[in-house]
Design a protein around this nucleic acid. Structure first.
Length: 479
RNA sequence: GGCGGCAUAGCCAAGUGGUAAGGCAGCGGUCUGCAAAACCGCUAUUCACCAGUUCGAAUCUGGUUGCCGCCUCCA
């Protein structure tokens, strides 16, 4: 089984081969912790969460590093605004990040380093760069000299000459080239600072990732990821720093996820349309968020709309309803360890092709339909063969769910949770519904259809849907 | 100005040389007291447009149009 990954570095899909056979080192740029996480963060984090899960499931021993940028202009500004120190601010948003991502069932990376805890490593890299004449000091600031690094621009496909033409960059007369960037910034009043050979100051934005990835994954590692926007300048600069300092190839594969739009608009401060994860989770089940975000390929842009979310919700219901249907059959409850079946294999084929979760979700629905069909066809009882097929297929569904990070609730808990949440929102008592359902069942027993239908209508207004099954009546909340 | 991406049914979305996955919505059917759920069938002779390469293209090449992103903090 070979995995093919679209490598931003070469702008094509390439066969994935890690530096060390069987082991993968992956570094992903995490958030700058100065504000709550929005749906765009969720997409990035989920993309790499699924990649990490899949690599592990494929047998790789994975070291997954995702950093927190906990010192930076934005943090300083925000902290000063609110009147608290940077550390407290960062701590607050790191905790929020965990709350959001735990809610979204994101697995923790192997290591989650913070910039402020790696100042010595950062200083060391800067010293090497100065020693190699790739960086220069002006007052207490250190800048990287991009013209001294011959490969500058290879990730983003930029040429220095072209960039200078229509560039909009801060003019800093002290820089040799306008695109030179700060490795170290000297202390300013009211800013946190650390001792360094160049006096008190703090690291620039890009250097932390070079220092921390090297610390935990080595000078050359396999995968470096992040949002598309990070390609330039952030990742370009990381390459310049790391390859400049160590003279070795940095990351073998560069993976970048696409953006999330809101109703076809880019999320931006001016539009004020940032959708925060914690707010989305008030309206939608976390697995709906996952299913929605994973239903497009990670590199494509995706448009967040209520309609799309409701469709994802309908889809998730369908899968859980199937799982519940299987659970209700005693003869299907045997839990034996089952080898991967054809649906899981098809899913893996999709994932091997640049982590194509969209195609994989198609396979998931195929599997769901397959079991529903088998159950529909066996009204008279399940044959041994059918039982075997269903157990295998269900096991595939759960395996796929494990990679996508969905279907981890029991169907019962899932539907109960939905009911409670929906009824709570409408301030309707559970008991009221139960009573109406019982009343209707009585009416039906007496074949008083008009009365039964009237009650059903009543429930429908409350977004309650009735299912009369052979075993009895069940009610659900409309998705 | 420079760099890059995208255009597939009513909507969402896979498919990168071999004859259009999947989901939602809709219609017809099975089931049902009627429904709901589920299943079955139907719903793109066609993949923005034009030319070319090829036995064969949604897929490759060139061009046109339209949309979007990055180049400034941004996932």
């Amino acid at each position: 089984m070979t995995i093919r990954i679209y490598n931003t570095l070469n702008r094509k899909k390439e066969i994935f081969e890690p530096v060390k056979q069987g082991r993968v080192g992956m570094y992903v740029c995490g958030p700058t912790v100065y504000d709550s996480c929005h749906i765009g963060h969720a997409r990035s984090v989920l993309t790499f969460d699924v990649i990490a899960r899949y690599l592990k499931a494929s047998g790789f021993e994975l070291t997954y590093v995702r950093n927190f940028t906990d010192i930076d202009d934005k943090i300083i500004n925000r902290a000063n605004q609110i009147g608290i120190d940077c550390k407290t601010l960062a701590e607050k948003y790191i905790n929020e990040f965990y709350e959001d991502m735990d809610a979204l069932n994101v697995e923790r990376p192997t290591i989650e380093p913070r910039a402020t805890e790696h100042i010595p490593q950062i200083i060391k890299v800067i010293e090497i760069l100065i020693g190699k004449n790739l960086a220069y000091q002006v007052d207490g600031d250190i800048f990287f000299a991009i013209e001294s690094f011959k490969d500058y621009g290879k990730l983003s496909g930029r040429k220095l000459e072209d960039m200078e033409a229509g560039a909009r960059v801060d003019v800093d007369a002290r820089k040799r080239n306008p695109f030179d960037f700060a490795l170290w910034k000297s202390i300013k009043p009211g800013e946190p600072a650390w001792d360094s050979p160049w006096g008190k100051g703090r690291p620039g934005w890009h250097i932390e990732c070079s220092a921390m990835s090297t610390e935990y994954l080595g000078k050359t590692f396999d995968i470096h990821g992040g949002g598309k926007d990070l390609i330039f300048p952030h990742h370009e600069n990381e390459i310049a720093q790391s390859e400049g300092a160590f003279g070795k190839p940095f990351a073998g594969f560069w993976i970048h996820n696409g953006f999330v739009n809101i109703n076809q608009e880019k999320m931006s401060k001016s539009l004020g349309n940032f959708l925060m994860i914690k707010d989305i989770l008030k309206s939608f089940h976390p697995e709906v968020v996952r299913l929605f975000l994973l239903s497009s390929h990670y590199r494509s842009p995706i448009d967040f709309t209520d309609k799309a979310m409701n469709e994802a919700s309908t889809g998730l219901n369908k899968i859980y309803a199937l799982l519940e249907r299987v659970e209700e059959k005693k003869e299907l409850s045997k839990i034996n360890k089952v080898e991967p079946g054809k649906y899981y294999k098809h899913f893996c084929e999709a994932m091997d092709d640049d982590f194509n979760t969209a195609r994989g979700i198609g396979v998931l629905f195929d599997a769901v339909r397959n079991i529903n069909r088998l159950l529909d066809e066996s009204k008279q009882g399940l044959s041994q063969n059918t039982i075997k097929d269903i157990i295998l297929c269900k096991s595939d569904i759960l395996k796929i769910g494990g990679i996508l990070g969905i279907l981890y609730e029991s169907p019962g808990a899932y539907f109960e949770g939905k009911k409670s949440k929906s009824l709570e929102k409408k301030s309707i008592d559970h008991v009221v519904i139960e009573d109406l359902v019982k009343e209707r069942e009585q009416a039906r027993k007496g074949k008083k259809w008009a009365e039964a239908d009237k009650i059903r209508k009543q429930l429908e207004v409350m977004d309650i849907v009735i299912e009369d099954r052979p075993e009895g009546t069940v009610w659900r909340v409309k998705s």
